[in-house]
Measured scan of single mutants.
Amino acid sequence: SPEVQIAILTEQINNLNEHLRVHKKDHHSRRGLLKMVGKRRRLLAYLRNKDVARYREIVEKLG
């Protein structure tokens, strides 16, 4: 489901952010981070168009 995919991506994004705080010059990982953020944004847009209630619920849960 989109909610699960968004939750997994959010966790991976948070982990990668911590990694990049330590390894500032790791541009390869930064590119992966940007791809993940874009994918999460697309999934959220899809969910917002399909079911606003589910969209609001996941945004509330994940912050």
Rank of each mutant, 00 (worst) to 15 (best):
Ser1Ile: 07
Ser1Gln: 07
Ser1Glu: 08
Ser1Lys: 07
Ser1Arg: 07
Pro2Ala: 12
Pro2Val: 15
Pro2Leu: 15
Glu3Met: 05
Glu3Val: 06
Glu3Phe: 05
Glu3Ser: 04
Glu3Ala: 07
Val4Leu: 11
Val4Gly: 06
Gln5Pro: 03
Gln5Glu: 10
Gln5Ala: 09
Gln5His: 06
Gln5Trp: 12
Ile6Glu: 01
Ile6Ala: 01
Ile6Leu: 04
Ile6Met: 02
Ile6Asp: 00
Ile6Ser: 00
Ile6Gly: 01
Ala7Gly: 06
Ala7Asp: 05
Ala7Tyr: 14
Ala7Met: 15
Ala7Phe: 15
Ile8Leu: 12
Ile8Met: 11
Leu9Gln: 01
Thr10Trp: 04
Thr10Ile: 13
Thr10Pro: 00
Thr10Asn: 04
Thr10Gly: 02
Glu11Tyr: 08
Glu11Ser: 08
Glu11Thr: 08
Gln12Pro: 01
Gln12Arg: 12
Gln12Ala: 11
Gln12Thr: 05
Gln12Gly: 05
Gln12Asp: 03
Ile13Leu: 02
Ile13Met: 02
Ile13Gly: 01
Ile13Cys: 02
Ile13Val: 01
Asn14Cys: 09
Asn14Asp: 06
Asn14Ile: 09
Asn14Lys: 10
Asn15Ser: 12
Asn15Leu: 13
Asn15Arg: 14
Leu16Asp: 01
Asn17His: 13
Asn17Arg: 15
Asn17Gly: 06
Asn17Lys: 15
Asn17Tyr: 15
Glu18Gly: 04
Glu18Met: 09
Glu18Asn: 10
Glu18Lys: 10
Glu18Asp: 08
Glu18Val: 07
Glu18His: 09
His19Asn: 03
His19Tyr: 14
His19Asp: 03
His19Val: 04
His19Arg: 06
His19Gln: 06
Leu20Ala: 02
Leu20Trp: 03
Leu20His: 03
Arg21Thr: 05
Arg21Phe: 03
Arg21Met: 07
Val22Ile: 13
Val22Arg: 10
Val22Tyr: 11
Val22Met: 10
Val22Ala: 12
His23Gln: 04
His23Thr: 04
His23Trp: 05
His23Val: 04
Lys24Thr: 12
Lys24Cys: 13
Lys24Val: 11
Lys25His: 13
Lys25Glu: 14
Lys25Pro: 05
Asp26Tyr: 04
Asp26Pro: 04
Asp26Ile: 03
His27Pro: 07
His27Glu: 09
His27Gln: 11
His27Thr: 09
His27Ser: 08
His27Tyr: 12
His28Asn: 11
His28Lys: 14
His28Glu: 13
His28Asp: 13
His28Trp: 07
Ser29Thr: 08
Ser29Ile: 13
Ser29His: 12
Ser29Gln: 05
Ser29Leu: 13
Ser29Asn: 06
Arg30Val: 09
Arg30Phe: 10
Arg31Gly: 06
Arg31Pro: 03
Gly32Asn: 15
Gly32Leu: 15
Leu33Gly: 01
Leu33Tyr: 09
Leu33Ile: 05
Leu34Cys: 14
Leu34Thr: 06
Lys35Phe: 09
Val37His: 07
Val37Arg: 06
Gly38Pro: 00
Gly38Val: 14
Lys39Phe: 08
Lys39Thr: 08
Lys39Ile: 13
Lys39Tyr: 08
Arg40Phe: 11
Arg40Pro: 00
Arg41Cys: 15
Arg41Tyr: 09
Arg41Glu: 06
Arg41Gly: 06
Arg41Asn: 11
Arg41Met: 09
Arg42Ala: 10
Arg42Ile: 10
Arg42Val: 08
Arg42Asn: 04
Leu43Arg: 00
Leu43His: 01
Leu44Cys: 08
Leu44Gly: 00
Leu44Trp: 03
Leu44Val: 02
Leu44Arg: 00
Leu44Asn: 00
Leu44His: 00
Ala45Gln: 11
Ala45Cys: 14
Ala45Glu: 13
Ala45Lys: 10
Ala45Leu: 11
Tyr46Ala: 11
Tyr46Glu: 15
Tyr46Leu: 12
Leu47Gln: 00
Leu47Glu: 00
Leu47His: 00
Leu47Cys: 02
Leu47Arg: 00
Leu47Asp: 00
Leu47Phe: 02
Arg48Lys: 13
Arg48Glu: 04
Asn49Glu: 14
Asn49Arg: 13
Asn49Lys: 14
Lys50Ala: 11
Lys50Asn: 12
Lys50Gly: 03
Lys50Asp: 05
Lys50Cys: 12
Lys50Val: 15
Asp51Gln: 02
Asp51Trp: 03
Val52Glu: 15
Ala53Pro: 05
Ala53Gln: 12
Arg54Val: 07
Arg54Ala: 12
Tyr55Val: 02
Tyr55Trp: 15
Tyr55Lys: 01
Tyr55Met: 02
Arg56Gly: 04
Arg56Leu: 15
Arg56Tyr: 12
Arg56Ile: 13
Arg56His: 12
Arg56Val: 08
Arg56Pro: 02
Glu57Gln: 09
Glu57Pro: 00
Glu57Met: 06
Glu57Thr: 05
Glu57Trp: 05
Ile58Cys: 06
Ile58Lys: 00
Ile58Asp: 00
Ile58Glu: 03
Ile58Gln: 03
Ile58His: 01
Ile58Phe: 05
Ile58Thr: 03
Val59Gly: 01
Val59Met: 14
Val59Cys: 13
Glu60Leu: 11
Glu60Ile: 11
Glu60Arg: 12
Glu60Ala: 13
Glu60Gly: 07
Lys61Pro: 01
Lys61His: 09
Lys61Thr: 10
Leu62Ala: 03
Leu62Asp: 03
Leu62Ile: 11
Gly63Ser: 12
Gly63Leu: 15
Gly63Asn: 13
Gly63Ala: 14
Gly63Arg: 14
Gly63Thr: 12
